[in-house]
């Protein structure tokens, strides 16, 4: 049933069916999300700048999610010798890099008016910039090595080792004193965002995820074609 996740030809068949609906649904959700963001109330202390959150948080979520997916595929790719994993790794790394960059830029634009600085080297900001460096190394590694097997294995091992950074990013705000505030949503208790602001945030997160998925499908299909012709 889920074999399209590991088999290139089944992936192609499955995504041919879902791609058009995916484009339609993600555009609709994005438009709804943007309207909800426009209508969302101003924060009691941050005012209008709180709306940067609706870009910043979905980008951060996708930056981490993309890396987590790459890690899972790298592990099964090496353990079970599954070439489709390496197609995924190569296709989605730039997507993760772009979302990480978007997260850093929007965070910086948010930090200047609220904290009074574009950038500080606290644990959260530093660990996310390390994530961007990891993505860049993965993209560059894809351009190296004549031998494809060696290249794919090297990249997969690099991705697995780099995944140690993910829990560090997540918990950096709890383990150390940082200028970045702790998480608002992922606590076990009720979220500390009011419902009227949480709702547009969730819709925007879904919209960003679907758009990310859309680009990923296109890139994976292209990558499959490239492999076929070599």
């Amino acid at each position: 049933m889920f074999s399209f996740l590991i088999n290139p030809s089944k992936f192609n068949k499955f995504t041919d069916i879902i791609f058009k609906p995916l484009v339609f649904i993600s555009s609709v959700i994005l438009i709804v999300g943007l309207i909800l963001v426009y209508l969302s109330p101003l924060d009691y202390q941050q005012g209008l700048t709180v709306k940067i959150m609706y870009i910043h948080v979905p980008s951060a979520w996708l930056a981490l999610l993309t890396y987590a997916i790459m890690t899972i595929y790298s592990i099964i790719g090496i353990a079970f010798k599954m070439p489709f994993s390496f197609i995924i790794n190569r296709a989605v790394a730039p997507i993760g890099a772009v979302f990480t960059l978007l997260c850093l830029i929007s965070g910086s634009l948010w930090g200047k008016p609220m904290w009074g600085t574009w950038w500080v080297w606290d644990a959260r900001l530093t660990s996310v910039s390390i994530l961007l460096l990891l993505y860049l190394v993965i993209i560059f590694l894809n351009q190296t090595f004549e031998n494809r097997d060696v290249r794919e294995k090297t990249i997969a091992i690099f991705i697995i080792i780099g995944s140690i950074n993910l829990p560090i990013i997540k918990f950096s705000v709890d383990w150390w004193n940082t200028l970045h505030q702790p998480a608002s949503i992922s606590k076990l208790s009720a979220p500390s965002i009011d419902g009227s602001m949480l709702q547009p945030l969730l819709v925007m997160t879904i919209a960003f995820s679907l758009i990310g998925l859309m680009i990923a499908v296109l890139r994976i299909k292209a990558e499959i074609l490239i492999r076929k012709n070599h």
Binding site: P41, L42, D43, Y44, Q45, Q46, G47, V50, M53, M114, W115, G116, T117, V120, L179, Q181, P182, A183, S184, S192, I193, D194, S196, M197
Partner: peptide, 16 residues
């Protein structure tokens, strides 16, 4: 240098 640190609570101004 002085930075402002805000917490993780978000709430509409009208509710406050």
């Amino acid at each position: 240098k002085v930075y402002a640190k805000h917490d993780e609570n978000y709430m509409p101004a009208s509710i406050k």
